[in-house]
């Protein structure tokens, strides 16, 4: 038996919003520790790694490991039926071929359940080694979303260059070029609004704008985003979801031809 209850369905709605442009289907792996998902987009350029820890749920029970292959389009349709203030419970029997979503309004006057067929997905998993990154940049997630949106008007790629002076995001295209430089926040009063740059080695890497824009669909999950970079390895864009886990996106860089 698997059962996981969240007081706020909005977290699950936002998680889905954050992955559905990249993935059409994905496997949710549930065990004692919580729910994990790892999946690549069709072109194998980006990878989503989601963790929702058991202790972040209002109620969590998982007697046996459960693997649930879900069509994310269908899951999106179902979650649209939940009110933002509804609680949501996901339930599945051991070895079941369906999952049930139960939505309850705050006063319990409305209870709805939606059963969805599961899929047998044979998706490739990648082993991601623990990595010490040369540069990590923390910044307000809304600022990162704004930059990606602004720069993607000019070109298809964004060059991210992190040096001891700060971090620079650049692009160029038919109409011209654009650069945004961010320096570390001088005095940190509010941590959520700070830009914090840690750099051991300077790094410059180039990434496709389109994917960065997909990642920013996670903005509402967290006030801050962290970018981790090292030379010649994928970028990690991490949104920490308060009290429950994180969503990480890995993006392969563009390389010299």
């Amino acid at each position: 038996m698997f059962e996981a209850r969240l007081l706020k369905s909005s977290i699950l709605k936002k998680v889905l919003e954050a992955i559905k442009d990249l993935l059409t289907q994905a496997t949710f792996d549930c065990d004692d520790n919580g729910i994990q998902l790892q999946a690549m987009d069709n072109s194998h350029v980006a990878l989503v790694s989601l963790l929702l820890r058991a202790d972040g749920f209002d109620k969590y029970r998982c007697d046996r490991n459960v693997t649930m292959g879900m069509n994310l389009g269908s899951m999106t349709k179902i979650l649209k039926c939940a009110g933002d203030k509804d609680t949501v419970t996901m339930k599945a029997q051991d070895n079941a071929d369906t999952v049930t979503f139960v939505f309850e309004s705050p006063n319990q006057e409305k209870v709805s359940d939606y059963e969805m067929k599961l899929m047998n997905l044979d998706l490739e998993h990648l082993g991601i080694p623990e990595t010490e990154y040369s540069c990590t940049i923390r910044m307000p997630s809304a600022e990162f979303a704004r930059m990606c949106r602004d720069l993607s008007q000019f070109g298809e790629s964004i060059v991210i260059s992190c040096t001891k002076e700060g971090v620079k995001f650049s692009t160029s295209g038919d109409i011209g070029s654009a650069n945004i430089k961010l320096a570390q926040t001088a005095s940190i009063d509010k941590e959520d609004e700070a830009v914090i740059i840690e750099m051991d080695e300077p790094v410059t890497l180039t990434f496709a704008c389109q994917y960065l824009n997909y990642f920013t669909k996670a903005t509402s999950l967290s006030p801050q985003v962290q970018l981790s970079m090292s030379a010649d390895v994928p970028l990690v864009v991490e949104y920490r979801i308060p009290d429950i886990g994180h969503i990480r996106y890995y993006l392969a860089p563009k390389i010299e031809e």
Partner: peptide, 14 residues
Amino acid sequence: KGKQATLMNFFKKK
């Protein structure tokens, strides 16, 4: 501009 790499250029399949 560079060529788009894939994740398999960096990570091994499990």
